[in-house]
Nucleic acid binder design. Sequence first.
DNA 1: CTCGGTGCAAAGGGTTTGCATACAT
DNA 2: ATGTATGCAAACCCTTTGCACCGAG
Lengths: 133, 133
Amino acid sequence: MEAEARRRKTRQLALVLDAVLASGTEHPSADGIFARVRAVLPTISLGTVYRNLHRLADEGRIGVLHLADRLARFDPTPGGHDHFVCEGCGRIEDLPTAPLDVEANAARRAGHHVTGHALVLYGRCRACAAGAT
Amino acid sequence: MEAEARRRKTRQLALVLDAVLASGTEHPSADGIFARVRAVLPTISLGTVYRNLHRLADEGRIGVLHLADRLARFDPTPGGHDHFVCEGCGRIEDLPTAPLDVEANAARRAGHHVTGHALVLYGRCRACAAGAT
DNA sequence: CTCGGTGCAAAGGGTTTGCATACAT
DNA sequence: ATGTATGCAAACCCTTTGCACCGAG
């Protein structure tokens, strides 16, 4: 296993990581990260942002989230956790991972080996449930 | 509620619906439906397929499934059920919907009102778990 | 000095849309 | 007759890539 490519640390990589880590609850798309980093390093290109985002995701240092829309969102928390999406304001909130026994059992009953899951809950957040919208 | 647009029944609409209903477990993309319908009505256009697919989904007559890749998949079963995706062969299998009490509670604890969910389990199906791949 | 990373710009691939025509009602 | 649905093709949007130059190790 000496075949590992020695990857280099660049300013761009560090800044992309910083931007994701600083994004809190926002779950920004590649474009959002691009904007954030550009504020610090105006010469960075979108392509580089994408390449670094993928690298960080591959290395398990950030999380990626796919919703119904067509763009990928990035998450400071890499571990497998679930999400709640508010249909009123669009907020995306992290939820602690849960067992999912029932579903996993249904799959195992069919003879399948379950290794992971992606779960998104939809509804209205506290604020939107209170007001109208 | 008299403001409903009177929608017309066309051959294209019927064929698109047929194609989805006949797709069984395949969960085809718009392109797959296009190919199926084209075999019967060679003059149909991709745009029409997309428009009818969206209409059927809006009317709740078919289901739509969004995975990590960038394309939408269509499902003969409209009701909210879950899915199992085999990472070996790519098969997508339907699973009965489950309660998700734990997760829903986590969200409710935060004051949110949960109305639905999307759950995808990942792993290896019976066949792929047996063989290698 | 090396060769992996960057910036730029063009290419890709799925999906949407404007427009004139065809057809369901 | 009336106006929705279609077919065609161009436009969109997010993402990926080829290439020559730059810079980390």
